[in-house]
Design a protein around this nucleic acid. Structure first.
Lengths: 137, 137
DNA sequence: CTAAACCCTACAGTTAACTCTAGGTCAAGA
DNA sequence: TCTTGACCTAGAGTTAACTGTAGGGTTTAG
């Protein structure tokens, strides 16, 4: 079965070897095995788990909470409900973030239009008389 | 014209007074005026500017870069193009984030289905034979 | 008039998530 | 054999963005 060194794994995951050692120290990847001399060997399955960790991280989940999930995984079927609840909560969280992001895009696009007009006119004064526009900033 | 104290402003913006003082120290809100005795008074317009700052922050823009934008605003029409470019870049950035978030939601939803089935079955073994499913984590 | 509840600054402390250094081991090529 | 490069650990350092403290001034309700 093909395995990867820490720097190869880092490259595939777009992380650094430092980061992977840090994750290991924090208990996120207890399943990564070592050679006799102590070198980590990452399996395909380990990379998949790390992709899941990166996914959770991208939802804003702190590393300590991700560790709880990893611990639950090691504890087996007794923790299935916790893990299910966790993912439901993550789903709600990320969907809320999505809504926030839509509002952000609205505001940014508004500003793009504002500045496009201003650049064309050569001055911001063109917006000074507008009723509900942001005047500056 | 109605104005707000730092703690009132903090309340409306869902921030703390500490954070507003910190933003001031970092040069994000040079436009906020003071009373004779040195107390900050926030105008409606200042709150709008702060909402824009929060918007930029939510796109992942660091405070030092937001300060550049604030500086450009103070420099007037000569910096319109920079500001326009900045918002175009923010737009691209946040749209990329949106795409990432869609992938994240996909993965999380997959896990929700995975664990729902497992909880119903009382064991994760139900997924052991699946071809392209993640086996664990 | 006084006491509580604000406000201020300067600066120290915190937290998360890395990031790097020092000092050492190990495996492969010239 | 020797040297180069990748690996290891422990632990220190960094960075961003707050968060809190100490010491002092001001405003307002009773």
């Amino acid at each position: 079965m093909k395995t990867y060194s820490i720097s190869e794994a880092a490259k595939y995951l777009d992380l650094t070897a430092y980061t992977l050692r840090y994750y290991d120290k924090e208990g996120l990847i207890p399943f990564v095995e070592r050679t006799e001399s102590g070198t980590r060997r990452f399996k395909e399955k380990d990379l998949d788990a790390l992709r899941m960790i990166e996914c959770l991280k991208s939802t804003g989940m702190p590393i300590k909470e991700i560790k709880h999930f990893i611990d639950w995984c090691s504890e087996g079927d007794a923790t299935l409900q916790q893990r299910y609840d966790m993912f439901l909560e993550r789903k709600a969280c990320v969907e809320a973030q999505l809504e926030e992001m839509k509002k952000t895009i609205e505001m940014i696009e508004h500003k793009c239009r504002y500045y496009q007009t201003a650049v064309e006119a050569g001055t911001e004064d063109i917006h000074k008389g507008a009723r509900l526009e942001f005047p500056e900033y």
